[in-house]
Computed example of a mutant assay.
Amino acid sequence: MDKKIEDLGKLSGKTLLFGGVYSNLQALEALIAVAQAEGIPAQNCICTGDIVGYCAQPEESIQAFQYWNAKSILGNVEIQLREGAEDCGCDFKKGSRCDGFSQLWYPYAQSKLSKNSIAFISKLPDHIQFKYANKQVCIVHGSYFNVSEFIFKSTPWTRKLSNFETTKSEIIIAGHSGLPFQHAKNNHLWLNPGVIGMPANDGNTSVWYAILDDKDGILTYRHHTLNYNYKLTHTLMANTLLPSAYAKTIMTGIWDNTEILPATERGLQGFDILI
């Protein structure tokens, strides 16, 4: 299938970047409040995909996102829901803990979404591109070539480089991995703003997003942490058939397992993220 790419033309002013809402309505509402406080218009707020995921309010999260009128690309979860598939398409190893958990949260999310919400996510593009501070930017979920590819800071630059070359971009904004990071090399930048639906395995209940700015025509970018009503998110998850391990992560900031992580990121579990 041909990729659907939405070109936003030239953007300017503060631009809010985030990923992985994961059906966490409380985090989404907190982020919308940040955008309003910062004076960032909805058209400058962009999600790297997976609006739906592990938490308890998939339908409410889609509705809130639609009302906000922010931008998003397709995550692997949206693609699978659009297709009526039986699994989340996360590329988890068969029989792994993450695979087992997905057999609980994915059908839960699938059962909660209205036809209108499925229609909304079905219209999302595979990628978004735009010009910002005289640089070409492309938004991907995992990578340009594979929506479910896990790319981390420790991932070799050669695997990242092909994305820049193919998209003719100087900046790649990516999601899927669940961890915020930035990796700059040879005038190129791979930026993962992090996700707002789950903590970043750092032992903190706060979650992550990023803001681009082009004040005086100079590109700057900064990661930020987001506090939200995580206790309510946990309570709502605990009162469903969702994985209790994911509800626990909301409270502890620690992932149940590190099976998707490379050795470098695995060794940083429980440590504050320094960006």
Rank of each mutant, 00 (worst) to 15 (best):
K4M: 10
L11Y: 11
K14M: 14
T15Q: 02
G19V: 05
N24R: 02
A27H: 08
I32S: 04
A37D: 14
C47K: 02
D50I: 07
Y54E: 08
C55H: 01
E60R: 09
E60S: 13
Q63F: 04
S72A: 15
G75C: 12
N76E: 10
E78R: 02
E83I: 02
A85F: 12
E86G: 05
G89F: 02
C90T: 03
K93T: 13
F101L: 10
S102H: 00
Q103S: 11
Q103K: 15
L104F: 04
P107M: 07
A109W: 00
A109R: 01
P125Q: 08
F130E: 04
A133R: 02
A133Y: 04
G142N: 07
Y144P: 11
F150M: 13
F150P: 06
F152K: 03
E165G: 02
E165N: 12
E170C: 12
I171A: 01
G175C: 09
S177E: 06
K185L: 14
L191Q: 01
N192D: 14
P193T: 09
V195M: 11
T205D: 09
T205E: 03
Y209K: 05
L212E: 00
L219A: 15
H224Y: 15
L226P: 02
Y228F: 15
Y230Q: 08
T233M: 05
H234S: 06
T235S: 14
L236S: 07
L241C: 14
P243W: 03
I250W: 02
I250E: 00
I254T: 04
D256V: 10
R266D: 07
Q269M: 14
G270S: 07
